[in-house]
Design a protein around this nucleic acid. Structure first.
Length: 327
DNA sequence: CTGCTAAA
DNA sequence: TTTAGCAGG
């Protein structure tokens, strides 16, 4: 998933304190997918209400956001719009893997092999329209804004940082760096209080690697992205060497010969992504009663727990802009 | 994943 | 008080 840059870029370590008072644009699909994968019972079954509706994502949204707001971090969620045509092969491949995993999960579940069931259940998660709409509904009730991207959420999230509406992008994928995100936080979760919160600044990353953003994108194309396979045998380290030797263009020409897709188009996806510039961001007062109604009465959450979590949302001041923290 | 409780 | 393990929906 995403472009594999891990081997060549070093994260800076930061703590929650460094994000205090700041806004983060969060890749919603990325986050929801994680919630659906990990918030499960020991046999792999997701949390559900009495009607069988999946509720794992609602649990994740409630507890993670309430604790972020309590720590004075302001989230904005970015939802994917229409994926570029070039992503369809990746999407088809993912669907295939997911459907295969689902078969193995159901089979293991029916035979009572909980461990195997859980392992494959995690790979079988998918974001249905109901998951998306219920997530948006809960965010709205919590007073947390979201933006619908025109294209890729990562690109839109990067644009918000560019535009000064967010301090950093929160995502697990390195793609947002190619999309031009100035600052990226990985592993933004409550239990990453110490240790594994990773921070990347695009300028600094480029300086340390001694490359330009355009070269980073070309490296990504050779390594392989969601939009096109890379050149066989080229990983992050090799790609970096090629950049330093000035051989990116010739290797890309080589890849172009065997590729069914126009690599200039892939480059354009990262450089000039179609983004939504007509969004409004406003933190609203949380609607506690409606949160209770939605989660407890409609989806069977414990009133005690939900009340406790929604009390933490008090820090969320309406209309207070996101800019004052660093301007 | 997060919150809670039981155990140390 | 800190931590590990399990339940949550």
């Amino acid at each position: 998933m995403g472009v594999k840059l891990k081997d060549i870029i070093e994260p800076e370590s930061i703590s929650f304190k460094d994000l205090e008072g700041r806004t983060v644009s969060i890749d919603a699909f990325n986050t929801l997918f994680q919630f659906l994968s990990t918030i499960r019972q020991r046999d792999g079954r997701p949390l559900t209400d009495e009607n069988g509706n999946i509720t794992s994502h609602l649990s994740g949204i409630l507890y993670r956001n309430s604790s972020m707001v309590e720590k004075d971090i302001k989230p904005i969620y970015i939802f994917d719009g229409k994926a570029p045509e070039l992503k369809s092969e990746t999407q088809a491949k993912r669907r295939e893997v997911r459907e295969e995993a689902e078969k193995i999960y159901k089979d293991a579940l029916s035979r009572g092999d909980a461990e195997k069931a859980r392992k494959f259940a995690m790979r079988s998660s998918k974001l249905s329209p109901e998951i998306i709409s219920s997530s948006k509904k809960l965010l709205t009730l919590m007073g947390i804004p979201y933006v619908d991207a025109k294209g890729e959420g990562e690109a839109q999230a990067a644009y918000l940082v560019q535009n000064g509406d967010a301090y950093a992008v929160a995502s697990q994928d390195y793609d947002c760096l190619l999309f031009g995100a100035k600052r990226v936080v990985r592993n933004l979760a409550v239990n990453s209080n110490l240790g594994n919160l990773e921070f990347y600044q695009l300028d600094k990353v480029l300086r340390e690697l001694d490359i330009t953003r355009e070269e980073l994108i070309d490296m990504g194309i050779l390594i392989g992205t969601d939009f096109c396979d890379g050149l066989k045998g080229v990983g992050a380290k090799t790609a970096l060497k090629l950049a330093h030797k000035g051989q990116l263009k010739e290797k890309i020409a080589e890849l172009q010969k065997e590729s069914a897709h126009d690599l200039d188009e892939v480059r354009e996806i990262f450089l000039n992504h179609n983004v939504n510039t007509d969004y409004k961001i406003k933190w609203e007062k949380p609607q506690k009663d409606k949160i209770i109604e939605f989660l407890c009465y409609e989806h069977g959450f414990s009133e005690d727990r939900v009340l406790k979590a929604s009390d933490k949302l008090k820090n969320l001041n309406s209309s207070q802009g996101s800019l004052d923290a660093w301007f």
